[in-house]
Amino acid sequence: MSRSPVGAAFRLASLVMMLVGLACGKTEKAPTPSPAERIIAVAPGITETLFELGLGERVVGVGDYSTWPPEAARKPNIGGLFDARLEVITTLQPDLAILLPSEEKLRVQLERLGVEVLTVRSETLAEVESMIGSIAERCGVAERGDFLQARWRQDLAPNPVPGNPRVLLSVGRERGRLANVLVSGPGTYLDELLGLLGAVNAFADAPLDYPQVGLEEILQRQAEVVIDLQPSPGTYEELMLDWQDLRAQTDMAPACPRVVAGDHVLVPGPRLPRLYRELREAIVSCGEQP
């Protein structure tokens, strides 16, 4: 007797599912391209690109980490990189979502909801450049895209610093001590920026894109310049202190620690030229030291 209500519920549920399945099946096939009037994006680099292309008005939702430009931060939040708020997205009624390849799950879910998805890559400088182009083209602002791409190439022209210094780029570590240091390996956009500056990446031979390295390895690499990339501004003093402590203890400590802070340093997007300039300034200032 206990099983009959369960059985009834199952029959009811499967009936409902069949009906809904049929209903959904109809709405899902809509291959005509949308006008891209209501755009959502999760990755901050994509949001920045949209605003840079003058499409800010058309953006209806952004991800957790979109803090720039300030207008973007005021848009409705549609969730983090991997836990999108689907109900918020549905309410926003977007017609185009621009995603990274890593957002595979969200892509599938949005397509089931009938939202067109454009996937772009942004791991290298060339990919960021073509991302600007493909977003511009898809949203009907190809000219503005061409202009931005030309400016991008101009801003990122090779501009070597003298002396091919060895540079170590730290992209994240514990604050207050030199532990769990993540550095940039070969092939990343940061490595490419160093290449454009004529500098040598101290971890150019690393097996991973962003390996975690120990202090011993850092000392052995004998980098002339160490640059801490830090997304939260106002941490300059604190981060410098850790390197100075190390210098007080060993002669092998990197000679010239620098910190580049700001919410743009780890976002592969249109603000990379700014990072490029700041990296150059940091390296050059080390060369001027006695």
């Binding site: 599912m17 809904v20 399945g21 959904c24 991997f82 836990d83 949005l110 089931r112």
Partner: peptide, 14 residues
Amino acid sequence: VRWMMGGLSVVGYG
């Protein structure tokens, strides 16, 4: 890490 947290967010009945 996010996958390890488990989640029930789905679209449709697949």
